[in-house]
Deep mutational scan, measured.
Amino acid sequence: VKKMAKAIMADPNKADEVYKKWADKGYTLTQMSNFLKSKTAGKYDRVYNGYVIHLD
């Protein structure tokens, strides 16, 4: 998940494709939050927020 999150950060155009894969795998927002937690607070906030919007 972190590898794909980094791919989104490097190229935001990949976001919809990645979010669809995550949704197809049934990842919940709680799971995504836990996967994307980082020592650098807020590092993956943009990715998480994008997934929230995708699921909505």
Rank of each mutant, 00 (worst) to 15 (best):
N49F: 14
I53D: 11
N13S: 15
V47H: 02
Y48F: 13
A10L: 12
D56P: 02
V47E: 02
V1P: 06
I8L: 07
S33W: 15
P12K: 07
D45G: 05
Y19K: 00
M32R: 00
L36T: 00
L36C: 04
D11Y: 08
I53R: 14
N49R: 11
A10R: 15
G50P: 00
T40V: 11
K2W: 04
M32F: 04
L55Y: 04
T40P: 15
A7D: 10
K37L: 08
T30C: 13
K25A: 15
T28L: 04
M9E: 04
I53W: 09
K2Q: 07
T28C: 05
Y27K: 00
L29Q: 07
V47I: 13
K3W: 11
N34D: 13
A5D: 03
V47W: 04
D56M: 15
P12D: 05
S33L: 13
K6N: 12
W22D: 00
K6D: 15
M4A: 10
N13V: 08
G26P: 04
W22H: 00
K20I: 08
K39A: 11
G42K: 06
Y48N: 02
Y27P: 00
D24F: 09
Y44C: 05
G50N: 03
T30N: 13
G50M: 08
A7S: 11
L55T: 04
I8V: 12
K3F: 10
G42T: 06
M9V: 06
Y51R: 00
I53S: 11
Y27Q: 01
D11F: 07
I53Y: 09
K25N: 12
K2P: 02
L55G: 01
Q31H: 08
W22E: 00
D56L: 15
G50T: 02
L29V: 11
N13A: 14
Y48H: 03
Y51T: 03
M32C: 07
K37A: 11
G50H: 04
Q31L: 07
S33Y: 14
L29D: 04
N34W: 12
S38K: 04
L29E: 05
R46T: 14
I8P: 03
D16S: 12
Y44E: 02
F35V: 05
A5Y: 03
N34Q: 13
D45F: 06
G42L: 05
K43M: 10
T28Y: 02
K14T: 09
S38F: 07
S33T: 10
G42C: 08
F35D: 03
K2D: 02
S38A: 06
M4H: 06
G50Y: 05
D24M: 12
A23T: 08
D16N: 12
K43F: 11
Y19G: 00
Y44P: 00
N49E: 15
Y44D: 00
G26E: 06
G42Y: 06
L29P: 10
G50Q: 05
P12I: 08
T30L: 13
K14F: 09
A15E: 04
N34A: 13
D16P: 14
A10I: 11
Y27D: 00
G42A: 05
K6Y: 07
A41Y: 10
V18A: 06
K37F: 09
K6T: 06
K20D: 04
K43H: 05
E17P: 04
K2A: 04
Q31I: 09
S38P: 03
V1L: 08
M9K: 05
L55E: 01
Y27C: 05
V52P: 01
A10D: 13
G26L: 05
K6I: 10
K37W: 10
A10G: 08
I8M: 07
K20H: 09
V1A: 05
T28F: 00
K21L: 15
N13K: 12
P12R: 06
N49D: 14
H54G: 02
K6Q: 13
N13M: 12
I53P: 01
H54Y: 15
N49Q: 15
S33I: 10
L29W: 04
Q31K: 05
V47S: 01
T28H: 03
G26C: 08
A15S: 11
D24N: 11
Y27T: 00
S33Q: 14
M9G: 02
G42D: 07
S33K: 15
N49S: 10
L36P: 01
T30I: 13
K25G: 06
G50F: 07
E17I: 09
L29Y: 05
T28V: 01
G42W: 05
Y19R: 01
L55S: 02
L55V: 04
Y19P: 00
V1Q: 03
D24H: 10
V18M: 08
T40A: 09
K21Y: 15
R46V: 14
N49A: 14
M9N: 06
S38D: 12
V52F: 06
A7L: 14
I8C: 07
N13G: 13
M9I: 12
K21P: 00
S33C: 13
